[in-house]
C-alpha cells in the first residue's frame, strides 16, 4: 500500500475517536401512511393488515466502530438491504437517526449527502451494474469518485486509480478497458477499488460475493479481509450466506421480516443460536 498516493487533494474527513463510525438508532422505514394499528409497535408483521403500509425495517439499531466488521444476515425481504440503503443515505428513514462519524445525517440532502457519500462511505453491490458504468474503463470508474470529491489533477487521479487497480489484484493491462468486458469477479474488484478511492472510513458490502463461483468467492473474501486489516475500516457486510458472515464478521445481526431478531458476537450467535429463526438458519444446509 506504500505505493498508493494519499488522497492529498481532498480535504480529508476526520474520524472522531470515542464514537462509532456508523450508528443507526431505532430506524424504521415505512412505505405508506401508516395507521394507529401498525404505528403502535404491537404489530410485528411487515405489512399492516389495516392500512396496507409496508415496513422495510422496524426499530433497527446498530453501531460499527473503526476496524470492526458487522454482519447482517437474513432471508430475502428481511430488510437487510433496506438497512444498508439507509446507511448509504440512499433512503431517508421514516423515523430514527443515522449518525455518521458522530454527526447526525438523518436528513442529509443534496450537497451534504454527496460529500458524505464521496468521502465517508464506500459501497459494493452484488450487481456491479448498480455501481459501475459498464462502458467506462476500469480506471475511469475508480477515477469518478475522486473527481466527484474534487480532484482536478489528471496524473494524480490516474496514478491513484492504477495503484488501487493493481492492489485489487486486477491485471494492469485491463486498466483502460471498459468494465462491461470484465468477468463477474473482476467487476467486484473494480467496485472495491472504487469504494476505496477516497479512503472512506466506512465500507458497506451488499452481498459482495453472491453470484460468483466458489473459488472466485474465496479470493474476493481474502481480498476484503486484507483490505480490512490494512485500512482498519468500519465494515458492514450484508449476506444471506452464513459462510461469508462467519469468515468476515466480528458481530452479527439476524434480521427477519424487517426486525432484528438476534444480535451478538458472530461465533456466539452461530454456535449457540437462541431465536428459533436463527436456529433454523444455522441448521439449514442444502
Amino acid at each position: 500500500m506504500k505505493t498508493i498516493p494519499a488522497p492529498a487533494a481532498i480535504e480529508p474527513i476526520s474520524v472522531p475517536s470515542g464514537t462509532p463510525c456508523l450508528e443507526l438508532r431505532d430506524i424504521t422505514v415505512r412505505y405508506g401512511r401508516g395507521c394507529d394499528h401498525c404505528r403502535s409497535g404491537e404489530m410485528r408483521a411487515q405489512r399492516c393488515t389495516h392500512c396496507g403500509s409496508v415496513y422495510g425495517c422496524r426499530d433497527v439499531s446498530l453501531d460499527v466502530w473503526p476496524g470492526e466488521v458487522l454482519g447482517i444476515v437474513g432471508e430475502s425481504g428481511s430488510g437487510k438491504s433496506t438497512v444498508l440503503a439507509v446507511s448509504n443515505l440512499d433512503i431517508q428513514p421514516t423515523s430514527g437517526s443515522v449518525k455518521l462519524l458522530g454527526d447526525d445525517v438523518s436528513s442529509a440532502e443534496g450537497k451534504q449527502r454527496r460529500r458524505l457519500r464521496a468521502l465517508a462511505l464506500g459501497i459494493v453491490y452484488q450487481s456491479a451494474q448498480a455501481n459501475l458504468l459498464m462502458d467506462v474503463t476500469a480506471g475511469g470508474n475508480v477515477a469518478e469518485r475522486m473527481l466527484g470529491a474534487g480532484w482536478r489533477r489528471y496524473d494524480a487521479v490516474r496514478s491513484r486509480a492504477l495503484a488501487l487497480h493493481t492492489d485489487m489484484e486486477l491485471p494492469e493491462d485491463r486498466f483502460d478497458v471498459p468494465v462491461g468486458m470484465f468477468s463477474g469477479g473482476m467487476r467486484q474488484r473494480v467496485q472495491l477499488a472504487k469504494a476505496l478511492a477516497t479512503s472512506p472510513p466506512v465500507l458497506l458490502l451488499d452481498e459482495p460475493t453472491s453470484g460468483l463461483d466458489v473459488s472466485v468467492q474465496a479470493r474476493i473474501l481474502d481480498l476484503i479481509r486484507r483490505i480490512h486489516a490494512e485500512f482498519q475500516l468500519a465494515i458492514v457486510v450484508v449476506s444471506h450466506d452464513l459462510a461469508v458472515i462467519r469468515m468476515l464478521a466480528d458481530r452479527l445481526l439476524v434480521m427477519r421480516r424487517g426486525l432484528v431478531v438476534e444480535h451478538g458476537l458472530t461465533d456466539q450467535v452461530l454456535e449457540d443460536p437462541q431465536h428459533p429463526y436463527t436456529q433454523l438458519l444455522v441448521s439449514a444446509q442444502l
Binding site: 450537497k111 467506462v136 474503463t137 475511469g140 469518478e144 487521479v157 483502460d176
Partner: peptide, 19 residues
C-alpha cells in the same frame, strides 16, 4: 446542476485523456 455534481462530465474528460 443544482447540486453542482459535475463528476460525470469530469469523468468524460478523464476518459478522453485516457483513450
Amino acid at each position: 446542476h443544482a447540486e453542482r455534481d459535475y463528476s460525470a462530465i469530469w469523468l468524460y474528460l478523464y476518459e478522453d485523456h485516457a483513450r
